[in-house]
């Protein structure tokens, strides 16, 4: 019994740790993104709240929390209120399966440095990213606003187009690792990270994951130029904040998944595992900011063309080639 209790507390400690790091990082990614975007555009970026704007995320949080939470008269009340929760929680839940370090051994018991090692972890991750688009589509629909509805529809269409490429691009990785479990995939990269043998899969995965996270150049559902703010145009206060939080957690999810599938997860020389994982996540977030600072938004048909006509065939070819190699060697 006491062992069970101990296990429970260790689990709780791990969840607390991961949630704290992820939420803190999400808050500060906003600041990093604004600062970096400023620099990319030869501006300074926020620097009024504390030195270097270090208190900016706190100020933003307070602002969002004290703002009125408007629910429109015409909106579907329940769904309207639920949608942001779906987006934020689905993004956060993905971190349950991300391994963040070598298992540590205390008193003969092995404690895995992952909240939950599901043997179909990869499918779980994809299921969650697909579910999070429900938040977008439902939020857009429940808002009873044409811009929000258009944004939601675009979000759903985009998800369908890119989910396929995302899943197909990862098949070679699964073939090489021989497992759906993220822990096993990381272990399979003990010798070398998969990016060396699977550069094409990496590129396809990166592009489709970018599209999944609805960031520039794939921010069709938001498209502030033509849709106002798309699916979250009618939201205010902390409900908008949840969408916002979801986006930045999604950035980290993307960075973490890329790290796990292609860069050896927490593996790296010298530094401890969690630090390496953090470095990789932050590195990818910075690359995403760079992309945001550089590329314009795709047109809707270009987005579909890229997904269906280029990425999916390329992913299929990659699977065939990998299969041939695995059989041959």
């Amino acid at each position: 019994m006491w062992l069970w209790t101990l296990g429970y507390f260790i689990l709780m400690a791990k969840i607390t740790l991961v949630l704290t790091v992820v939420l803190l990082l999400a808050a500060y990614l906003v600041l990093v993104e604004r600062k970096l975007l400023g620099r990319f555009q030869a501006r300074i970026g926020p620097n009024r709240a504390g030195i270097f704007g270090i208190l900016q995320p706190i100020a933003d949080g307070i602002k969002l929390l004290v703002k009125e939470d408007v629910v429109l008269d015409g909106a579907e009340r329940g769904i309207f209120q639920l949608a942001p929760v779906i987006v934020a929680s689905m993004a956060l839940l993905t971190f349950a399966i991300i391994p963040f370090g070598k298992p540590i051994i205390i008193g003969g018991h092995e404690i895995p440095m992952v909240i939950s090692d599901i043997n179909v972890g990869l499918l779980y991750a994809f299921a969650l990213t697909s579910l999070s688009v429900y938040g977008v589509a439902l939020g857009g629909w429940a808002s009873n606003s044409k811009y929000a509805l258009l944004g939601g529809i675009r979000g759903a269409a985009q998800m369908i187009s890119y989910e396929l490429a995302l899943g197909l691009s990862i098949v070679p990785v699964v073939m090489m690792a021989g497992s759906f479990s993220l822990v096993e995939i990381v272990n399979a990269q003990a010798k070398w990270p998969f990016i060396i043998v699977q550069p094409l899969a990496f590129i396809i995965f990166f592009i489709s994951a970018l599209a999944e996270s609805k960031r520039i150049p794939f921010d069709m559902p938001e498209a502030e130029a033509e849709l106002g703010a798309g699916y979250h145009i009618e939201y205010s206060g902390m409900r908008f904040g949840l969408f916002f939080l979801g986006e930045y957690v999604q950035m980290q999810v993307l960075g973490a998944l890329i790290a796990v599938f292609f860069l050896g997860g927490w593996r790296g020389p010298f530094l401890p595992g969690p630090i390496w994982l953090l470095i990789k996540i932050i590195g990818f977030s910075i690359i995403m900011v760079w992309i945001r600072a550089t590329l314009p938004r795709f047109r809707y048909d270009q987005l579909m063309t890229l997904g269906w006509k280029i990425l999916i065939p390329a992913a299929l070819i990659n699977i065939v080639i990998t299969g041939v190699f695995i059989v041959a060697f």
Binding site: L36, G38, R39, F40, Q41, A42, R43, I44, W290, A293, T294, L295
Partner: peptide, 15 residues
């Protein structure tokens, strides 16, 4: 495109 933005990153702000 990426080179141009990167160059701006190291040019420093004009603000």
């Amino acid at each position: 495109g990426f080179y141009t933005t990167l160059k701006n990153l190291f040019r420093g702000p004009f603000t």
